[in-house]
Amino acid sequence: MKDQLTEAFVSTKAIFRDGGLVIDAPAGARNAALSNRFYFYLMMPAIIVLAAITLYPFFWLIYMSLHTVDLGLADDTWNNLKNWTRLGRDRKFQEGWWLLLKYSSLCMFFEVTLGVMIALILNRSRYEKILVTIFLMPMMMAPVIAGLVWYYMYNSTFGWYHWLMQSLGILGDKSILGSSSTAMIGIVMVDIWQWTPLIILIVLAGLKRVPRDQLEANMVDGAGDIRNFFQVTLPNLYPFLLIAILLRFMDNFRFIDAILVLTGGGPANSTKILPTYLFDVSFSFFKLGRGAAIALTLLAVTIVLGMILVRVFERPSSTRSNSGGT
């Protein structure tokens, strides 16, 4: 939202500068300055609200991470960065990071692959609109409900998924969530089921924007469908995949609801990805200071990853069309 506002700001400026509206330059400049201030006033309420709900809690979080916070029973006390130094020795914290990365990468890989493939099929289908609506249904479900539904499907006594896998000889008597070697697969599948539709939706939007003449030029150059996909469609999809991956990354880093319902982090901590551990520390053990420190590491890594992704994908050529112009 903030970005959009800044963008609106910049583009209004550009209209005044480049739009040819300005005949008398000094007067135009005065006008521009005036209007900019006017727009700034218009944005003030939004800026104040944003500051209140994002900036204040953010600084409060930093404060907490530096103190021992005792939920109001005693005063917060400065503890010489103990919250932070302890993280270095915290095996569960490190394990949590490793599991989170494993979980996110698995989800991302399958969701993007499946999402792109399904979007490609839907894009050519005559019944695209109906099919998209159907495919979007999992996404509309609350994650906790999705977790519950799958919890029952995975159930080793009456879950049909378990029955199916057992009949095929893939699973034994134990539920997929019951063994520390397979539980991760179980929660990944739920995520894939629920969030692949988002990728489909975004990629479909991207596919509509792939310039047809580039596809045709490549066909005339001698490319078949597969080569055309990798040489033209995929590069033109990069910005859209970036949006999708970024969104999913951020989601995964605060993902907790379905896991709490499905495994609660078990068995034997095999699905205790960092956000789940963070939940334990803050709201089971009520170590709010330590929780704040863990949350800040998550935030920092999210920001860094986001920046890397933007850098990787933001090749100017892939975000703009090259048609027309002199």
Binding site: N218, P235, N236, S321
Partner: peptide, 8 residues
């Protein structure tokens, strides 16, 4: 008409 060059 629009050249259809591959931008990347």
């Amino acid at each position: 008409e629009n050249y259809a060059l591959y931008p990347h």
